[in-house]
């Protein structure tokens, strides 16, 4: 602890932070890994890489990635609208954004499948076009987009508010066109927040179970998500197999989140932001 801190109480507060993290996060997660030790390496590999499980990784990570990307586009747009314009009912719309946080995910799943089923409001309109959403992988993306929306909006919104319209006005008065204002002024400023929002939405989607199982159809090899595989193994009292798949999921998630954080760090240095 050679580092000099201007604030007192570093050791104490760091100690509490570590204790808290250990109790809430690290100990339960390490239990996952310890449980997998009851399997031999060959059993572990078999449990974690069976064709059905591999197909579910592809779906879970793929759909989560796409859903997070969709949320980046529409989340930034929503945040933009909420910070830059004044209109009637804005406060209410602002509150709507948080709904996916508050709603029990199973309720969201049932509501989404009711709307997107072939006899539902949206599903009946898409059906003649040959698009089936409910009970297909597309349904998984829809559910994951729904639960991930608040993350991007809520991370980008405060940054846009801080940025202020004056900066854009200044850029415009210096001769920048609209595209240049966005690309050269706004985008670099919100970029780190967008990445954070993306990472949060992505991570949330990977672990999501409740809303997805109602709309996915849960067909093995096609629309079965990894969390369902884990639940299925638990239902068969196969604790070790379940934790094996969970461990793989955790490791992939950790690597991805670590990479995203690393990218953000590199990006911040490049643009010289202290944030």
């Amino acid at each position: 602890m050679a580092q000099k801190n201007s604030l007192p109480g570093f050791n104490l507060s760091l100690g509490y932070a570590l204790l808290y993290l250990s109790l809430i996060v690290l100990i339960p997660l390490s239990a996952v890994f310890i449980k997998t030790f009851s399997l031999s390496w060959a059993e572990f590999v078999e449990a974690a890489t069976a064709p059905r499980v591999m197909a579910s990784y592809k779906l879970t990570f793929g759909a989560s990635f796409i859903a997070a990307l969709i949320n980046v586009v529409f989340g930034v747009l929503t945040a933009w609208v909420l910070t830059r314009y004044q209109f009637f009912g804005k406060k209410i719309i602002d509150a709507f954004v948080d709904f996916p946080f508050a709603l029990p995910t199973a309720v969201a799943g049932i509501a989404l499948s009711a709307i997107y089923a072939k006899n539902g409001w949206v599903g009946s309109l898409l059906e003649p076009l040959g698009i089936t959403v409910a009970y297909t992988p597309l349904g998984v993306i829809v559910a994951l987009t729904f639960i991930g929306l608040p993350f991007v909006v809520r991370t980008v919104q405060p940054v846009l508010e801080d940025l202020g319209a004056e900066v854009e006005e200044a850029a415009a008065s210096l001769g920048a066109n609209r595209w240049q204002v966005f690309y050269k002024v706004i985008f670099p400023a919100i970029w780190p927040a967008v990445i954070t929002g993306f990472a949060l939405a992505f991570a949330r989607a990977i672990g999501e179970y409740g809303s997805v199982i109602f709309i996915a159809g849960n067909m093995p090899m096609v629309s079965e998500i990894t969390p369902l595989i884990i639940i299925t193994k638990l239902e068969q009292y196969d604790y070790a197999g379940a934790t094996a798949v969970a461990a793989v999921m955790l490791v992939i998630s950790f690597i991805l989140l670590f990479a995203i954080n690393g990218f953000q760090w590199w990006n911040n240095r490049r643009f010289g932001y202290v944030k």
Binding site: A117, A134, G217
Partner: peptide, 20 residues
């Protein structure tokens, strides 16, 4: 079988309410 629900009630909903 077009949909494999995780439980009996889920299957009921799929058949009766979702018209599958």
């Amino acid at each position: 079988v077009p949909v494999l629900d995780t439980g009996g009630r889920g299957a009921t909903t799929t058949f009766a309410q979702r018209d599958i």
